[in-house]
C-alpha cells in the first residue's frame, strides 16, 4: 500500500489540498486526500489547513481526532478491518477477531512487527447478509471463517 516515506513537506501538503479549496465544506475532502496520499494525516498538515481555511489549529486538530478514519501515524502496508457489529457477531465475529489478533500477536489498531498489516475494528461493512465480514485494503470478503482468514493473512504477507 503506502511506503513509509519521509515526512511530507509543507509544499507537498499544499499541493494535495489546495485544488480542493473551492469546495463547499472542503476540510473532510482535504483530510481524505492527505490520507489517500500518505496513508495518514501528517502532523505538518495541521498548520497548513488552518492557514488555508482560516481556522485555529486546535479546531483542525479537533476535527481530525473526531473521526475514526483519520490516522495520525503511518499504518502497515495493508489494512485489515474486521467487522465487530451485531450481524457479524451473530455469525461468530467475536471469536474470529480474537483468534486473528491472537495469531498476529497484536491488539486492535496494532501493526504486525514486520509492518505487513494493521488491524482495525469497523462497525458494519454492509455485508450483514454474508457475515462475518472483513475488508482488506478496500476489498470486502464475506462469510469469513478461520481458513479464509488464514488465506487473507498469507496474501498480505503475514
Amino acid at each position: 500500500m503506502h511506503s513509509s516515506a519521509p515526512a511530507p513537506s509543507e509544499e507537498e501538503i499544499r499541493g494535495v489540498v489546495t485544488p480542493l479549496a473551492s469546495l463547499e465544506g472542503p476540510l473532510l475532502p482535504m483530510l481524505h486526500a492527505l490520507q489517500d496520499t500518505w496513508g495518514f494525516v501528517p502532523q505538518a498538515a495541521v498548520p497548513v489547513l488552518a492557514d488555508i481555511l482560516n481556522l485555529g489549529r486546535a479546531e483542525v486538530h479537533g476535527v481530525i481526532s473526531f473521526y475514526h478514519d483519520f490516522r495520525r501515524n503511518p499504518a502497515g502496508r495493508h489494512i485489515l478491518k474486521i467487522c465487530r457489529a451485531e450481524a457479524c457477531q451473530s455469525m461468530g465475529a467475536n471469536a474470529l477477531a480474537e483468534s486473528t489478533l491472537q495469531k498476529l500477536g497484536i491488539a486492535w489498531h496494532g501493526t504486525t512487527p514486520n509492518g505487513a498489516v494493521t488491524v482495525e475494528p469497523v462497525y458494519c461493512l454492509g455485508m450483514c447478509a454474508c457475515a462475518p465480514a472483513v475488508m482488506v485494503d478496500g476489498k470486502v470478503v464475506g462469510r469469513v471463517d478461520d481458513a479464509r482468514m488464514d488465506r487473507i493473512l498469507a496474501e498480505v504477507g503475514v
Binding site: 469546495l23 463547499e24 465544506g25 472542503p26 476540510l27 473532510l28 475532502p29 483530510l31 481524505h32 481555511l53 479537533g62 476535527v63 473526531f66 473521526y67 475514526h68 478514519d69 483519520f70 469497523v122 462497525y123
Partner: peptide, 28 residues
C-alpha cells in the same frame, strides 16, 4: 450534485451531525 465521503463516525448519520461533517466540522 456531488458525492462526499464520510469518515467512520456512526453519529454522522444523524442529520445535523451529518451537516456539520459536510461543512468540515466535528460531527457533533
Amino acid at each position: 450534485m456531488e458525492v462526499r465521503t464520510g469518515a467512520g463516525a456512526y453519529v454522522c448519520g444523524e442529520e445535523t451531525s451529518l451537516l456539520n461533517s459536510l461543512e468540515g466540522k466535528r460531527g457533533t
